[in-house]
Amino acid sequence: MLDDLQLIKLAKEGRLEAFEALMSKYKDRVYNIAFSFTANHSESDDISQNIFTKAYFNLKSFEEKAAFSTWLYRIAVNECYNGLKKRKNNILSLDVQICGGENASLKDTIEDKSVNVEDTALLKAMQLKIRKAILELPDKYRMIVTLRDIEDISYEEISEIMKISQNKVKVWLFRARTKLKDKLKNI
């Protein structure tokens, strides 16, 4: 099994299958970032395609100082923002077709709240509420919550990805979670 740097080296030499292997490795993570940011499958599909296409054509500018994931996520952040600029009025629409698999992991979260876990309609409504609350956050707060809470990326890496100080990471996260706490206080 080749590691990222070996795959990048091959891809830079023009071996497309090496880039395809990198894509297979990271596509779900990248898609998940886009989905958390847009809550829309078709937008996330477009954004993910753009992220990888741009990554490919910029591979030469990737210096091995940072991890490939950090570099790729930075493109992902930029592309999420670019996608937003192209959209009319910057209004995002919540995709109600969020797949059912989501319910399974939310069960654990609300299990101790004496909710009937078999009530999938309720779980579905709940996950939509959470997605909606995230969607209503200002862009930078939505992004920071995505990177930290959805992708579980460290403060240090987030500061590299978003090009902000770690102090700012903490402050934005604090504000983002405060806003979410307010929006979701009835859950």
Partner: peptide
């Protein structure tokens, strides 16, 4: 609670044909 709710959202997988399109 907020941290749990947000990180409890399950992951959305990329479409199977994403690589092909790219």
């Amino acid at each position: 609670n907020i941290k749990q709710l947000v990180s409890g959202l399950s992951r959305q997988n990329a479409p199977a044909n994403l690589e092909n399109k790219v």
